[in-house]
Amino acid sequence: MSSQDLEYYSWNETFSVTLYTMHHEPRNTVAYVLLAVLFVVIVTLTILGNALVCLAILLNRTLQRTTNYFILSLAVADLLLGIIVLPFSAILTSSKQWYFGIVWCNIDLSFDVMLCTASILNLFMISLERYFAITSPMTYQRYLTFRKVLIAIALVWVVSFLSSFVPIHLGWNTHAELHVNGTDITHGCYFFENQVYVVTLSLTTFFIPLFIMCATYARVLMIARKQAQEINKMSILACTESRTPQDQKHHKNHMVSEHKATITLAAIMGCFSICWIPYFVIFTIGPFINQNVIPEVVHDFVLWMGYINSTLNPILYAFLSKEFRKAFKRILHCKCKKR
């Protein structure tokens, strides 16, 4: 593709070009080194932190419950992002060059979209699970079986794959005259976005699920607040006459656990929203405006804000969940026995 073609597509009101490799002057040495160090830290923390979450759930029976299976799926998505996508994006952002060929360009872009979609859909499933756990505690454990959880997780990954690899490799995201995102320009990797693809992907895999999650968590947190007031009274009024003190204590501890899990997951969802909303806003409006309006540095910044969310999730678990803190300490002290 010629430079004239790129200029045409970047100005066309129905077509957008995200330049994964810009043909600008390379960064100076100091900027390159600083960015390289920063990206190494981010990639390393992302891989180690999410690997720690996976091990914590797999090696501790106390963490092997419904909510945490979705958290495990979320951690796997973040871990794969750290292994497959972030190293190449780090090299690209810091050096402004793509060294890995057209084939890997399309594969890398597909994994990027798939893993981001898997993250938001896992959080969507977690919000629904929390809603039923809080609003229908008596029927929740009976109906939400391990088998149904596995089906839900499998559905998340199937939808994520179908919304990324299939349209990108069939060229549905591109202009009618193109079929791939990579070009034959040396060191070039481009992601082409038409209006239909961008609006469909943004609405179905981000904005609509995000809106439902916000509404769900608003309802859940209202209920959780009432439950917290009951916990502080040290009794469950509706069960006082029918349960022994030991049963009441067990029920109270269960409510405390559910309340804490809800608060932790609400914080994780809030962090995800803050990190990814700027990118999806720019991604969505891109095909409708002149791409030169958005500076390159802004695109890089909002993209890495989204990536950093995968780094922050394990930190949130460590700060907000006592159970995960204990599991992390056991693993880091090589006490990885099943309990």
Rank of each mutant, 00 (worst) to 15 (best):
H259N: 07
K260P: 00
K260Y: 05
A261S: 03
A261L: 08
T262Q: 01
T262P: 00
I263R: 01
T264F: 04
L265H: 02
A266L: 06
A266V: 11
A266E: 01
A267E: 02
A267D: 01
A267Y: 10
F272I: 05
F272C: 10
S273H: 05
S273E: 07
S273R: 00
I274H: 07
I274M: 09
C275I: 12
C275K: 02
C275D: 08
C275S: 13
W276V: 08
W276A: 03
P278N: 06
P278R: 01
Y279M: 01
V281W: 01
I282L: 14
I282E: 04
I282Y: 11
F283V: 12
I285F: 08
G286N: 11
G286W: 14
G286L: 10
G286P: 01
P287A: 09
P287C: 08
F288A: 07
F288K: 01
I289K: 03
N290D: 15
Q291C: 04
Q291L: 10
N292K: 10
N292Y: 15
N292W: 15
N292L: 13
V293T: 13
P295T: 14
P295V: 14
E296Q: 12
V298M: 04
H299F: 08
D300V: 05
F301W: 11
V302M: 05
V302I: 11
L303F: 11
W304V: 04
M305F: 07
G306E: 03
G306V: 05
Y307N: 01
I308D: 00
I308Y: 02
I308M: 03
I308L: 05
S310E: 00
T311P: 00
L312E: 06
L312R: 08
N313T: 15
P314H: 07
I315Y: 09
L316H: 05
L316E: 04
Y317H: 11
A318Q: 07
A318F: 13
A318H: 09
K322S: 07
E323T: 08
F324M: 06
F324G: 02
R325D: 07
K326F: 09
A327R: 05
A327G: 08
A327C: 03
F328G: 04
F328K: 04
I331W: 12
I331K: 09
I331Y: 09
L332W: 12
L332D: 08
L332H: 07
C334H: 11
C334F: 15
K335Q: 15
C336W: 15
C336R: 09
K337Q: 13
K338A: 10
R339D: 12
R339H: 09
R339V: 14
R339P: 11
R339N: 11
